[in-house]
Structures are given as C-alpha cells and as structure tokens.
C-alpha cells in the first residue's frame, strides 16, 4: 500500500495527527512505554497488573487491516503482528465507542476521535518521561506516536487548487485543522 502511495503524484502534508492510546476513564493506568504497548498488542502482556493497574484482563481494540492507522501503529509501535485476540473494528469511532464502554479496554486511533475516553500518556522508553498528545508536545516532538496527514495530487497544484492548498497550509487553514482535532503542521 505504501509503495502504491509513493508512486503517485504530489504529496502534501497538511496536518499532524497524534495517534492516541485510548483507555476507559476509570482506568488508573496513566502511562505506557512503547515497548509496553507493543507487548500489550502482541498479547505478551494480557493483565493490567503488569503495567501498574488492578488485576484484570486487558481487552484489545484496533482497526481493520484495511486501515492506514492499523498499518502505522503496527509498523511504528507494535513492530510485529497484532495478537489474534485484538478486536478489529471498522472505524476509529467504533474503537472509541468500544473502549468507552469497556473498563478493561485499550484502543488506538486519531486524537480527533477521542471523546469520552482517557488519553494514555506515552513514553519512548523507561528512561524518558511520558507525554500527553497535546499540540505543544507534538510540535516539540515529545509525543512519540505522530504521523502526517496528506493531500495527494496528480500534479503540482495550480490555479484554484493551488489557492486551496495554500489556504489549507496557511495559518487560517491550520486553525481549521486544529478545530477538528488534528494538529497544525507549522
């Protein structure tokens, strides 16, 4: 899929997205390292106890393998195949909805979708501090799981398209980006 994308025309990063780890609001676990996340999603850690929570089984929620988020999270965080027990839901909203209603659930997805669930702080490894996926932390590269959102075009934009692209990248357009829950690229 990635090969496919790079073969195409023009790629314009237009927003920054923090992939957030969702948890139920009552969940006492505050922070997880990338390794812990990987262990959780490959089912090497199956109990909340092992990451500093109460004794309870963790339910995994994720996206369908047709999703970009699935691939991104797999390649950059899990770095192996997901455990079979990971429930793959057809949309990020479905993941959020599932975690919202599951005290022992953990899910991932774009920051824009996280309504009614807790963000988990993420740290690179045990020596680093954990950060929330806030605009500031993402701009400073402190939050570990971020990705760009792109616009794709056949050719370099001209005319009205160029105007639109310029607008989208202007501070005005980036305000809209921030308004819907993503983070500005500049």
């Amino acid at each position: 899929m990635q090969k496919l994308i790079t073969l195409l025309g023009v790629e314009i990063p237009c927003a920054n997205d923090g992939i957030t780890v969702y948890m139920h609001e009552s969940n006492p676990v505050k922070e997880l390292s990338l390794k812990q996340l990987s262990d959780i999603y490959t089912a090497r850690i199956t109990n909340r106890k092992e990451v500093g929570g109460p004794d309870a089984k963790i339910t995994l929620y994720g996206r369908e393998n047709s999703s970009g988020t699935y691939v991104f999270f797999k390649e950059n965080v899990v770095k192996a195949d997901y455990a079979a027990s990971c429930q793959t839901l057809p949309g990020t909203a479905a993941v959020v909805n599932a975690v919202k209603k599951d005290k022992f659930g953990i899910g991932y997805g774009g920051a824009a979708y996280a309504e009614g669930v807790k963000h988990c702080m993420v740290k690179r490894d045990d020596n680093n501090t954990a950060y929330h996926p806030t605009e500031e932390n993402i701009a400073k590269n402190l939050y570990s799981i971020t990705r760009y959102l792109y616009m794709y075009m056949r050719n370099r934009p001209t005319g009205d398209v160029k105007k639109f692209v310029d607008w989208a990248l202007s501070s005005e357009g980036q305000k809209v980006v921030a308004g819907v829950g993503y983070f500005p690229v500049r």
Binding site: G9, V10, E11, V165
Partner: peptide, 13 residues
C-alpha cells in the same frame, strides 16, 4: 507519474 520519479514531489509554499 513517469517511472523514474518514485517519490512524490513535496509541495509547500
């Protein structure tokens, strides 16, 4: 796009 150029052009004002 023609085969030689595999990476996308990056456009930014």
């Amino acid at each position: 796009q023609s085969g030689e150029e595999l990476s996308p052009e990056v456009y930014s004002p």
